[in-house]
Design a protein around this nucleic acid. Structure first.
Length: 143
DNA sequence: TAGGCCATCTGGTCCT
DNA sequence: AGGACCAGATGGCCTA
């Protein structure tokens, strides 16, 4: 998946890590000032890698709690954010409706509740057909 | 083979 | 000064 060479994690030893197009041990015979600059760059690269890995870990966590069926293909980052947004809005709406109906007597009927779920599933999660919603509401999430 | 997605590198900017 | 964050560039992998 990745393209560039993978420098050794975190190490800033003279002969560890490497820059594109440079010999095996790029820092040998270099002025101390240049050495310092290169070391800082490599350290910054390592920090950036760790930061992005943290971000990806967060995306993975989000994927686990966001609806996802057809587990053959994982959501892209963009899709994950979009689905999370829709999901939160749908849950929020359901919660609001629940509060609104909690005063009345109708809410206790399971049929009404299920209809509400169906409606919001279609509205907020972008399912065109009731069948797709059915699958969403009945299939367990991927976690 | 083109297009989508991704990891990584890099330089700039802001903050501590 | 050094770390965190960001966005652009680059190139690899995968799928239609």
């Amino acid at each position: 998946m990745k393209s560039a060479s993978t420098p050794d994690e975190d190490s800033t030893d003279d002969c560890q890590g490497q820059l594109k197009g440079t010999p095996k041990c790029p820092l040998r015979n270099m002025p101390v000032r240049v050495k310092g600059l290169i070391k800082r760059r490599l350290a910054a690269n390592a920090r950036e890698r760790r930061r992005m890995q943290g971000l990806n870990t967060a995306f993975d966590s989000l994927r686990k709690v966001v609806p996802q069926w057809g587990e053959d293909k994982k959501l892209s980052k963009y899709e994950t954010l979009q689905m999370a947004l829709s999901y939160i809005m749908a849950l929020n709406r359901i919660l609001s409706e629940a509060e609104r109906y909690s005063d009345g007597e109708d809410w206790s009927t399971l049929q009404h509740y299920e209809q509400l779920q169906q409606d919001h599933c279609q509205d907020y999660l972008g399912f065109g057909s009731p069948d797709a919603c059915d699958r969403f509401l009945t299939e367990p999430f991927s976690h």
